[in-house]
Computed example of a mutant assay.
Amino acid sequence: MTQIIKNILCFGDSNTWGLNPETGKRFDENTRWTSLLNKNLGPGFKVIEAGQPNRTLVNNPPFDGVLSGVSYLKPYLDAYELNFIIIALGTNDLKKRFDLTPSTIANGLNDLINAIKMYYQSKSNPVPQVVVICPAQIRLTGQYARIYNGADAKLKSLFNEFKKIADNHKYECLSLSSIEVSAEDGIHFNAKEHVDISHKMANIIGRLTGGD
């Protein structure tokens, strides 16, 4: 009997991509949480890693091309038959230069979720289950202290706004408030935290699939 594979799209920014805060390079597949998630869930699942540094929910960062989540999600929806979409965005929107309120960032998340639903409804296909990951705490240190000045004060409100939107859509919202960001740059996760996130997400996916 052929096993049915459940496809999971992890759509996020540099922490989904797996940026190593010590080297600036990418963690390998034995370290980043998206790859570990696939190993934790086992052979009945396929995780599609779609992290991109600097990706946003609201604006396209200057000089970085089309990195807005709304602009770049459709090719993944076209390419894969998805059962789950994990959205892990919002951190880059907190950069001081964008001057966005938590409410505006959350509206970007809501727009992205609505775009996903409209895409599948236009094809009369079932909408994948969405899981929202709210940004982790930010530590204002090093090269990012100026870039993210004031972001730490917005995070509690941002989580509340994200949670409200996820609840309205009847989707899960994972808080990373207990996950420590690195002392090196205050934004990205070290290897241990990638392990922790992979376990938290595997638990959510396992619960949503009834342990299949």
Rank of each mutant, 00 (worst) to 15 (best):
Leu158Ala: 04
Ile105Pro: 02
Gly142Lys: 06
Pro135Asp: 08
Tyr171His: 14
Gln143Pro: 13
Leu109Pro: 05
Lys96Thr: 14
Thr141Glu: 06
Ala151Glu: 04
Lys117His: 07
Asn107Leu: 07
Lys170Glu: 13
Ala145Glu: 11
Lys164Gln: 14
Thr101Gln: 08
Asp167Pro: 06
Ile147Pro: 02
His169Tyr: 00
Pro102Thr: 10
Glu161Ala: 13
Ile147Met: 07
His169Cys: 00
Ala106Asn: 10
Arg97Trp: 11
Tyr144Lys: 09
Gly108Met: 02
Ile147Ser: 11
Tyr120Gly: 00
Lys117Ile: 00
Ala145Ser: 14
Phe98Gln: 10
Gly108Tyr: 02
Gly150Trp: 12
Gly108Asp: 01
Asn168Arg: 04
Cys134Arg: 06
Ser124Tyr: 08
Ser124His: 09
Lys154Met: 11
Leu94Met: 04
Cys134Gly: 13
Ser103Cys: 13
Asn168Leu: 08
Arg97Lys: 15
Ile138Leu: 11
Arg97His: 12
Met118Ala: 14
Leu174Ala: 04
Ala166Ile: 03
Leu112Glu: 03
Asn110Thr: 02
Pro128Asn: 02
Tyr148Phe: 11
Gln129Ile: 10
Arg146Asp: 07
Val132Tyr: 01
Leu140Phe: 09
Ile113His: 00
Ile105Val: 09
Ile116Asp: 01
Leu109Lys: 01
Tyr144Ser: 06
Asn160Gln: 13
Asp93Cys: 07
His169Pro: 03
Val131Ile: 15
Gln129Met: 09
Glu161Leu: 04
Ile113Glu: 01
Phe162Met: 04
Phe98Met: 13
Ile165Trp: 06
Tyr171Arg: 07
Tyr119Ser: 03
Lys163His: 15
Lys96Asp: 05
Ser122Cys: 12
Thr141Trp: 05
Tyr148Gly: 04
Ala145Arg: 13
Gly108Asn: 01
Thr101Ala: 06
Pro126Lys: 02
Leu140Gly: 04
Ala151Pro: 07
Val130Ser: 00
Leu94Ser: 05
Ala145Gln: 12
Arg146Ser: 09
Ala106Val: 12
Asn149Pro: 08
Thr104Tyr: 11
Val127Gln: 00
Tyr144Ala: 08
Asn107Met: 09
Leu158Trp: 14
Ala151Tyr: 09
Ile133Leu: 15
Lys117Ala: 03
Tyr120Lys: 03
Arg139Trp: 10
Ser103Lys: 03
Asn168Tyr: 09
Leu140Gln: 06
Phe159Glu: 05
Cys134Glu: 13
Ala145Lys: 15
Met118Trp: 10
Gly150Phe: 06
Gly150His: 06
Asp111Thr: 07
Leu158Gly: 05
Leu112Val: 01
Glu161Cys: 10
Cys134Thr: 14
Arg139Ala: 14
Ile113Thr: 00
Ile113Gln: 00
Leu174Met: 11
Leu174Gly: 02
Tyr120Thr: 01
Leu112Met: 05
Asn107Gly: 02
Gln129Thr: 13
Ser157Arg: 01
Leu109Ser: 05
Pro135Arg: 08
Ala106Tyr: 08
Lys164Ala: 14
Asn149Thr: 09
Thr101Cys: 06
Gln129Val: 06
Lys164His: 15
Leu109His: 07
Leu100Val: 13
Asp93Glu: 02
Tyr119Leu: 02
Ser157Leu: 04
Asp99Asn: 15
Ile165Arg: 01
Ser124Met: 13
Val127His: 00
